[in-house]
Design a protein around this nucleic acid. Structure first.
Lengths: 193, 193
DNA sequence: AACTTCATGTAACGAGTTACATGATTAT
DNA sequence: ATAATCATGTAACTCGTTACATGAAGTT
């Protein structure tokens, strides 16, 4: 009988605090800059967080001694708070990264919608596909833009992974959109086989 | 200047209620069966929900007239409640599906972890990759198992999409794992280029 | 014996988002 | 004029999960 060697509560939860720790492991940054990292760049492809969760997380992590914070005065603006990860912070991050991972789950509104392609107006389906292609192309160009920068092996692996998946999606849509766009063409192909 | 033609609140939110409506559009089911659909089968690849959200959603949807419910008595078990989507329910679903979509976002703990491959123990990285391959293989076999069933074009599109992405991921890992597994090999390859 | 499947439901809790507060500067 | 960028922070809210309650039948 299979007995799990870990409890559910042990499963590594990629919460905002951990995300911030990860971001700061790559260099000092402010909360604002961390948000930007989640919006563009390597991180953006598989994580997200809002200011409303980043700022409190940063405060909490600092209280716990996992980060240090230096304020930099600015004129006519709130002080810039530059956070740095501490040794304890690096250890806490590494600790989290050694825990069992949950299987990733994609939440795709696009795929959910495509499930009903047959009952949706043809223009809607076409627009959905076209937008999707545009989004993927944009994502691809962002990913490729990061090619030049000096990345660790891990970062480069992740970058290429994203690139590969986006390229495969793009190719798939190119090759298969007729299936949902042109319903008659589909039936003809079925018959030809 | 760009003026958005829709408000944020208009953006289609794939909440549990909508997921249930979608599931029931494919045929009558109980809450328990809907949960199973989210755990395996076509739906499972990009959505999820627990009993704690499915049952209340079903009750709410019924109150709103989007579903009807017939109880089926059972011996020594709670009555089976079979839900059917109503005409109003189908319209509500279609309505939702016509709203602007948010760009999908993958939350991947695997990729987040791989970002730090360089500072993680080699065995951890190897195990991560091996587990990932196993998970993907399993997912692929599930997706392929659905091949025979009679699917609508939309469903078949989604099935093949999942298949294509999983295959691409598998191929990617096969071709690129050396990048994070064997750090010296990586450097040698870099020099050879 | 112990666990899984069947079957529904509720309450407590948690982690996040959205919206607000504040406000100068620069780009369109 | 209007909006976006910079910059931080808090409070209300939302949506969902987890854990519990209940309990028989079948599987390992």
């Amino acid at each position: 009988m299979f007995r799990p060697f870990f409890e559910k509560s042990d499963i590594y939860d990629m919460d905002v605090g951990t995300l911030c720790l990860g971001a700061l492991d790559m260099g000092d940054a402010t909360g604002y800059e961390i948000k930007k990292m989640f919006e563009s760049g390597l991180f953006s492809h598989f994580m997200d967080a809002s200011f409303g969760s980043i700022y409190p997380a940063l405060t909490k992590l600092t209280d716990e001694g996992l980060l240090t914070c230096t304020s930099q005065q600015q004129e006519r603006r709130p002080d810039k708070k530059i956070y740095s990860i501490t040794k304890a912070g690096r250890e806490a991050l590494k600790d989290k990264l050694l825990r069992p991972l949950a299987v990733d789950k994609l939440k795709s509104e696009f795929l959910f919608t495509m499930l009903f392609a047959d009952v949706l107006p043809a223009e809607r389906v076409a627009a959905l596909l076209t937008n999707r292609v545009a989004d993927l192309r944009e994502e691809l160009s962002h990913i490729q833009a990061e090619r030049d920068s000096e990345l660790t092996n891990g970062q480069e692996f992740v970058r290429r992974y994203g690139e590969a998946v986006v390229e495969a999606s793009l190719k798939f849509i190119r090759d298969n959109r007729h299936l949902v766009e042109n319903r008659n063409a589909m039936r003809e192909m079925e018959n030809m086989r």
